[in-house]
Simulated scan of single mutants.
Amino acid sequence: MAKIILTHEVTGLGAPGDIVEVKDGYARNYLMPRGLATGWTKGAQKQVDQIRAARRAREIHTIEDARAVRDSLQSKPVVVSVRSGANGRLFGAVTTADIAAAVSAAGGPAIDKRKIEVPTAIKSLGEHKVHVRLHADVQATVEVRVVPNA
């Protein structure tokens, strides 16, 4: 078992700044090469404190605030305008950064793109559902409407 420090959110494992134990191969072959984790050392505690402070500054602090943001996100669909072919297929895919930018452009709250989970890649026009983790106990299901560029 390897003791590591997560530097990014890993679904099912933990949040940035968490110290977790995982199997050696998982740490060495998956987490570390992708930059999702670093090895744990005694001197790394300062780095963990910095990561946690940055996370606290970014996240929504109370459940009431998270519920208010969830209600505003779920009240209307997010419209993303992209280039598409004649048959409705996109040139590329809609990313979490595109969705976060569309929410901000529509006057919604600033959402961290790392908190957005897309169940299946959005590669066609139409309506799609995505999930946004706002708080440990609050998750919003947002309707994303993909329309062609004018």
Rank of each mutant, 00 (worst) to 15 (best):
V146W: 03
L73R: 03
I122C: 05
T95R: 03
V20E: 05
L90I: 08
A93H: 11
H128I: 12
G126Q: 04
G92A: 04
A140D: 10
V94L: 07
P33K: 05
A54N: 15
K115P: 02
T38E: 09
V147M: 12
G12E: 06
Y30A: 00
N149A: 14
T62H: 05
G43R: 14
E117A: 11
K23C: 02
K113G: 01
P33M: 03
E143K: 14
V142A: 05
R58H: 12
A68E: 10
G126T: 08
W40H: 11
G43D: 09
R83I: 03
G35E: 06
Y26F: 10
G25R: 06
V138W: 09
T11H: 09
A106I: 07
S81F: 04
S81P: 04
A66R: 08
K76V: 09
H128F: 14
I63P: 00
D24A: 11
S104I: 06
Q47R: 11
I99Y: 01
G126E: 09
N149W: 13
G108H: 06
G92W: 04
I4K: 00
V142N: 08
G14W: 03
G25C: 04
E21A: 07
L13E: 03
R28E: 05
L36N: 10
R34L: 10
R70F: 06
Y30N: 05
V48W: 00
Q74F: 02
K113M: 10
K23D: 05
R83M: 12
A93R: 11
V82I: 14
H131Q: 14
A2E: 12
E127I: 15
R70Q: 15
D71H: 11
R145S: 15
V80M: 08
D24S: 10
F91Y: 14
A15N: 09
R56C: 04
K23E: 07
L73G: 08
R34Q: 15
G107V: 01
A150W: 08
I5D: 00
T120D: 13
L134D: 07
A86P: 13
H128S: 15
A100Q: 04
S72R: 13
D24N: 10
A97F: 06
V138Y: 09
V146L: 05
S72I: 05
A121N: 12
L73Q: 02
A15W: 13
R34P: 00
K42H: 08
A44S: 12
D137V: 13
D112I: 00
V138P: 07
L125D: 09
G107E: 04
K123G: 04
T120Q: 14
